[in-house]
Each structure stands twice: as structure tokens, then as C-alpha cells.
Design a binder for these strands. Structure first.
Length: 586
RNA sequence: GCCCCGGUAGCUCAGCGGAUAGAGCAACUGCCUUCUAAGCAGUGGGCCGCAGGUUCGAUUCCUGCCCGGGGCGCCA
């Protein structure tokens, strides 16, 4: 619709420029939906952009454009020059009404396109491939709300890319080597010994202060809990289960052995189960340790050295990041001989490109954002393409309950988990709330609103209910012996009420919204759009006196049932992109 | 000190260089009891953090400052 008008305006501008003796290019004008309804369906700013160049007044130019555009082959019913030089256009209503058939023909796939992949399309090679890496939480504890936001965000971005022409791989990278996992194993072992009565629990004072030196003994028993150890109850649970299964048979095992393995496996299963609960499945779980065993890490280090990008100092190996224009150099291998997280990350990103992805997206929380340039630069020097590595960052989550911010602490394991919230509000509401806000801002998760079952208040239910109501109407129609119309099986010109035209105009926007959300990696646009659609549909149904869907007038009934079906498809498609279910009844 | 992200209605937030800046909740007024569940119609509420700059036009782009969050490790 918009593109059709744009084409006509371009023709008119071409003629206008030719008449003025200007052979230059067309201006980069906009065709947009004005904020105010009175300004028509679309407005065009071309006249203002050309005023200086042609030495004419903007309003005069706009008038000339208006004349040349005419009715644009029946597309335009009315146009006028307004404000400083806008050309406002009202389209013929038949243009809108007929679009409803397009929506119905496309069904749930209305909204899908190849829009976002356009810039990277590979000639004759099929869809371009994108990898989206997200969550990537190390298996040291349950998923927190921060991970939850990233999980939903990443999954929605993946869904959007898939709907706009990409072949998507979801990947989870996890770190199963290194100090963190050793401390995890030692934490479990400490709880294990404690449960067997062979060691003492650390004092509360010691746990509260990570810098405090551990006491060696409490009441004659040794304290073995590691400094900065994991304090959550889930650690105790794992230890208790080990005692039940193995008795005291593991007292001589090192913390870094069986204890770490069992803890890791248990926690990871738990994380996966949580992700499945909220509808997220990964195609690849990439294991950091594999980079050591298959030699890719060593290879990357050797290649960096060959390229003169690492050097030895203070017993450590440094990445010469300053040579790549970055602030300072970074250690990649500690003086202990153990690589820092940076080294495997570099090898990992190089590996991503070797697997043939056209685009690699890392989704990360704001606390990791500064690390990305180092990984990207190093990987780029090893053959990865810099402009095909993209960082998508997001801010944190705070939880509000009873008007108060809920305090959380990762270290003390007093954080709220994804599971706890999903227990309370369900996966659909969880996802909707997590995706409703733009990534760049903090997300305030209002637990009270999320728990509220009132469909009018809770935006997730408000949208779902709008969808369910289309099924309610269908059930009612079938009861009355009225069949649902086929995509072309009704006369859309019967939809003449302003609220009906407005609905159609809104429904038709879906593909544009989806494309923009995908390209900008901002799924919240879809959530807002769905609220707008529901915000038109729900009141429409409420005002039953003015426009009952099911009426004596068979042709009108068919048209309104067609409208209901279009609403259903648009909402179903949008909710699918957010990973939120679209129930037939609630 | 340096870097990143925010600052828009009482609250939570949308806003693609355009015209008189929007939504939901909360508040206020009137009506209604539903094609499923307290709905519908309306009202009030704003130096778009501050100050410059670019532009025909700035909430939007640029610079500086203020406030809030995060980051600046041989932690990940």
C-alpha cells in the first residue's frame, strides 16, 4: 500500500524535476503515517526537501506535486497541502478493504518476508545463515531473571530473523573449565562433608564477607567451604543426594573431580528444563572444553603469535589489542599457564565463521559489553569478518512487588529465579513481560501486574484474549449455522465503519513491524503493536450495539467474520514471533 | 578519571528528523451488565534532565554538563 503510493510519488517527482530542468536525483523523501488521523493516511515531505534546491516555496512545490500525482490511478481519493509543505493523502477506502483478503490468504504467515536478509542475501545460495548465541550461562546455578530476559530476547530475535529470511541456528556456549567450575565442585564437596559430619559449616560472618579469611576450625571440625563459594541451597541439595547415593565413598575425591561433574550435570539439566518451560530450545550447546581437546585454542594462540599479536610479559601472554586500536592490551594466558576466558572466546568466534555463518550475533548483558571489542578484533585478525560479528546488548531486570524493589544478590544466592516467576505467572506472561521493553533500558518486572488475571489489566492476557475472542465468535457462528468465510469469500466493501477501516489499516502494518523489529533486533515493537491491535479489537467487540459481528445481514456478517479471521491471523503470527501461545479459549 | 546505557504524564514505559508528543495503569465524571470473565465513553495531568549547535523543522542528530545504572581484573 505504502510502496504503491511511493512509486506513484516518485513518478510525479520525476516529472516535476524534469519540468524544472533539474536532472538531479530524487530526494530521499519519506512516506509516513502521520501521528494525527486528520492528516490523512500518509504524508510526504518531498516538497520541503526540494524547496531550497529548486528555489521555490515548499507549499508551492507541494501543490505542484499534488497536481501531478492526481488520483494516482485510483489509489488516492483525496490529497491536500498542509503545514509547512506536507502533501497529505487519503487513500480510497477500497484500497484498504481489499487488503483484508491478502491477510487471509497469507494466514498465520502474514507478516513473514525476506526483508531482514536482503542486505546479506547470497546469490543463488539459498537463505543466508545466522547464528544467534545467547544465555550462555555457566552451569553454576539456576537461571536468574537477568538470564531470563536474555533467553527470551535471544529467542525472539531468532524467531524474527527466521521469519524474515534467515536460516537461524541458536547456540548456547558454556564454560566448563576454569576456576568458576572448580569452586563449584569444592562448594559441593564442602556441603557433602558437612552433611556427613566431617566438616563444619562456615560461620555466617565468614559467608557475609568474601574477603574475610576462613576460620580453620569450628567446634573442633575443619571448615572446608571455599572462599567465594556458591552458597545456594541447590548446592546443599546436590550434596545431600550424593550422600544418599554414594554414602561416604567420596570423601577422598577432589572437589574438581566427581563433585564438579555431578554438580555441573545436575545444574545444566535444570537450566535446560527451565528453558524448555519457557519454550526455548537450542540447536547447539557449545562446550568450551572442546576447544582445548580438539586443539582449536592452541591453534588460535599460535596464529595470533605468528601474526605478532601476542607477546610475553610478567610471565603471562598478552594480546596486543592496542595494535588493533583498542584501549589497552589484555592477558590471554595467565602466568599460571591457564588461559583467561578471552582466549577460548577468541578461538570460539573464529570457529563460528569456519562453520560458514554469514552473520554471528552475540547477545550479552550490559556487564559484558566492554569485552566484545577484544574478542571481535582478535577473531577478525584470524580471518573472521568484523562487520559480520554483531553485539546485541541489553540492560538488567529489576523485580517490583508491592510497590517495592525486590533485593537480589547473586553471590548469596538470594536472587529470584526464572522458575520461581514462571511458577507464579506462567510461561506466556513471563515471556510477554520480558520482551515488552526495549533492550537498552532497564526492565522493571512488575510481579503484581504479571500475577493479575484480569485480562484488561494484564497486557499479556489482553492480547491473548483478543485472539481467543475471534474463536469465541467462530463458535457462536457455528452454533447459529453460519460458516466462516473463505479468504475471498466475502465482500470486504461492507466494512465501512471508521473503526473497521482503522482496524484493517492496523492489521496491514504487521509485515512492516516485523521487518523493523528483526532488522533492529528489537522484538518489543511486536509486543507494542499487538497491544495496539488488541486495543482496537477488544473495544470493537465490546460495543456490540453498533456493530454486532453476527447479524441478520448475511453479507455483512461474512465481512465481519472475515475481519475477525484477519485479526486472529495477525495476533497469532505476532504471538508466535514472541513465543507466546495464542489460545482458542481462556 | 575514562567507556557504555538510560532520563518523556503520579507510576511503568512507547515514540521511523516532521505538524497540536502517545499508550497502559492510577485519578476524576457519566453510562452499561456484554458474541466469555468490571466493561464502555469522556476528563484532567508534560520547561520530552539542562545548555548550546546542525536543520526549513530537533523528544529524535552532534557537543558539553547534571542525575541514575553498569563497566574499566592474570574473574567470567
Amino acid at each position: 500500500m505504502k510502496e504503491a503510493l511511493r512509486g506513484k510519488v516518485e513518478e510525479a517527482l520525476q516529472a516535476l524535476l524534469a519540468a524544472a530542468g533539474d536532472g538531479g536525483p530524487l530526494p530521499d523523501f519519506a512516506i509516513e503515517v502521520p501521528r494525527q488521523k486528520e492528516h490523512g493516511d500518509f504524508s510526504c515531505n518531498a516538497a520541503m526537501l526540494l524547496a531550497k534546491r529548486l528555489g521555490k516555496k515548499p507549499r508551492e512545490l507541494a501543490e505542484e506535486l499534488r497536481t501531478r500525482l492526481g488520483d494516482a490511478g485510483g489509489l488516492v481519493s483525496r490529497s491536500e497541502v498542509a503545514g509547512p509543505g506536507f502533501l497529505n493523502v487519503v487513500l480510497a477506502s477500497a484500497g484498504w478493504q481489499d487488503r483484508i483478503h491478502d491477510v487471509l490468504k497469507a494466514g498465520d504467515r502474514f507478516g513473514h518476508s525476506s526483508a531482514a536478509a536482503g542486505g546479506v542475501a547470497r546469490a543463488g545460495q539459498g537463505k543466508p545463515r545466522v547464528q544467534v548465541e545467547f544465555v550462555s550461562a555457566n552451569p553454576t546455578g539456576p537461571l536468574s531473571t537477568g538470564h531470563g530476559r536474555q533467553a527470551v530476547l535471544g529467542d525472539c530475535i531468532a524467531r524474527l530473523l527466521d521469519a524474515t529470511g534467515w536460516d537461524v541456528t541458536r547456540e548456547y556456549y558454556f564454560n566448563d573449565g576454569g576456576r568458576q567450575m572448580r569452586v563449584l565442585g569444592e562448594s559441593v564437596k564442602a556441603r557433602y562433608l558437612e552433611h556427613l559430619g566431617r566438616a563444619a559449616a562456615p560461620t555466617a560472618a565468614a559467608l557475609a564477607d568474601p574477603e574475610h579469611a576462613w576460620q580453620d576450625q569450628v567446634d573442633g571440625l575443619p571448615v572446608v567451604f571455599p572462599k567465594d563459594g556458591y552458597q545456594g541451597d541447590y548446592i546443599v541439595d546436590i550434596a545431600v543426594r550424593l550422600v544418599e547415593k554414594e554414602g561416604a565413598g567420596l570423601v577422598d575425591e577432589p572437589g574438581d573431580g566427581r563433585f564438579r561433574e555431578v554438580a555441573q550435570a545436575t545444574i545444566f539439566q535444570n537450566i535446560e528444563a527451565t528453558l524448555h518451560r519457557i519454550g526455548i530450545r537450542f540447536d547447539v550447546y557449545f562446550n568450551e572444553r572442546s576447544l582445548y581437546t580438539d586443539g582449536k585454542l592452541e591453534e588460535a594462540l599460535v596464529d595470533l603469535r605468528k601474526a605478532g599479536l601476542v607477546y610475553d610479559a610478567d610471565g603471562a601472554v598478552w594480546f596486543r589489542a592496542t595494535a588493533c586500536g583498542l584501549e589497552r592490551d589484555r592477558v590471554v594466558v595467565k602466568s599460571s599457564g591457564e588461559p583467561t576466558y578471552l582466549m577460548p572466546d577468541i578461538a570460539y568466534h573464529r570457529d563460528k565463521f569456519r562453520r560458514g555463518f554469514d552473520l554471528v550475533i552475540d547477545i550479552q548483558g550490559a556487564d559484558h559489553i566492554e569485552q566484545f571489542p577484544f574478542v571481535r578484533e582478535a577473531a577478525a585478525r584470524l580471518g573472521a569478518e568484523r562487520d559480520r560479528m554483531e553485539l546485541v546488548m541489553h540492560q538488567f531486570v529489576t523485580i517490583t512487588s508491592g510497590g517495592e524493589r525486590v533485593k537480589q544478590s547473586t553471590r548469596k544466592a538470594t536472587f529470584i529465579t526464572v522458575d520461581e516467576i514462571v511458577d507464579d505467572v506462567g510461561a506466556d506472561v513471563f515471556r510477554f513481560f520480558m520482551i515488552e521493553r526495549k533492550r537498552d533500558g532497564h526492565l522493571d518486572f512488575d510481579l503484581d501486574l504479571a500475577k493479575d488475571k484480569n485480562w484488561k489489566k494484564n497486557p499479556a492476557y489482553y492480547v491473548q484474549y483478543a485472539h481467543a475472542r475471534t474463536w469465541g465468535i467462530e463458535r457462536k457462528a457455528l452454533e447459529a449455522g453460519v460458516a466462516m468465510p473463505a479468504a475471498d469469500g466475502f465482500d470486504a466493501s461492507r466494512l465501512v465503519l471508521p473503526e473497521e477501516i482503522e482496524l484493517v489499516k492496523k492489521l496491514v502494518l504487521l509485515p512492516e513491524i516485523v521487518a523493523r523489529a528483526a532488522e533492529s533486533r528489537e522484538p518489543h515493537h511486536v509486543a507494542y503493536y499487538l497491544r495496539e491491535v488488541a486495543g482496537l479489537w477488544n473495544p470493537y467487540l465490546q460495543d456490540g450495539d453498533r456493530h454486532r459481528v453476527l447479524s441478520e445481514d448475511a453479507a455483512l456478517t461474512a465481512a465481519r467474520l472475515g475481519l475477525a479471521l484477519a485479526v486472529r491471523h495477525v495476533i497469532a503470527c505476532g504471538l508466535e514471533l514472541l513465543g507466546v501461545s495464542a489460545p482458542e479459549r481462556m
